[in-house]
Write a protein that binds this DNA or RNA. Structure first.
Lengths: 128, 128
DNA sequence: CCCAGCGAGTTGCATATACAACGCATGGCA
DNA sequence: TGCCATGCGTTGTATATGCAACTCGCTGGG
């Protein structure tokens, strides 16, 4: 399936550009989502990013280990929320230029592929 | 990134539809590729599917273990090639209807999403 | 007041995927 | 002829991802 291949390629492009900063596109996406949505609970993060809750749990673990985020127990007993640590904020700042470059590269390299994949998948042709 | 999310969703839809048959879209794709391209070496498979060689090695391992494919050493010394076992061929036949259903469902559910993702990514807008 | 069920999070397990480092055979080149 | 570069495959390691089963605390019904 073209869409899946496309996803892999995009992931490679971004991970590649972000490698010097020590994180991948999955983690950067989560950091940005947390930055934007303020302190929030894992569950909400899952909704925003369309990720299974267990995936969120484990990605958060890694980012906690790096000190990029902080987690605070929810007042009302169970659950907790996460927010950016200053290290996380700094990292996002630092990685932003690389992200831009990757964005540009993806657009350049995949414009056509995206276009044709979309046509195949949503208009009419056979998709594999 | 929308493209990645889209890829995940597509994967879920197909894996879901194929689950009763005991394989996922990644494996089905490989089976079909092998069926089409005849006996071929792992490396070529990687080129066709745009997968890293180590990924190919390990996916082939799993499919070998299932008895879906057979591997034969290359005449000229090193390397080998793989081809479908009859079980593999039968499986592809059996799974085909489910694949069709998933295809339809993906088209229905993602047509718009694909369209907009493609527009954002290849025309102009900010992509995250 | 107690219990059943629900919702959020965790854990076990499996797959898919990639990069880096290594192994091994082959083929050209000195 | 013998050695090195190159190409294909494997192995080590790490992420990302999902499903299923479980836990635990709250909350609404009785």
């Amino acid at each position: 399936m073209r869409v899946r291949r496309l996803g892999r390629t995009v992931t490679r492009i971004f991970d590649d550009a972000l490698r010097p900063h020590g994180l991948g596109i999955a983690q950067l996406s989560m950091l940005v989502a947390i930055a934007r949505a303020g302190p929030l609970r894992p569950f909400e993060l899952g909704c925003i990013l369309d990720l299974e809750k267990s995936t969120v749990t484990r990605n958060l673990e890694r980012m906690l280990a790096h000190g990029w985020i902080r987690s605070t127990p929810e007042a009302g007993g169970n659950g907790y929320h996460v927010e950016l640590e200053s290290a996380g904020r700094a990292l996002v700042q630092r990685a932003y230029p690389a992200w831009l470059v990757a964005q540009e590269r993806a657009r350049r390299e995949l414009g056509e592929a995206l276009e044709s994949a979309m046509r195949k998948a949503s208009v009419g042709g056979r998709s594999v």
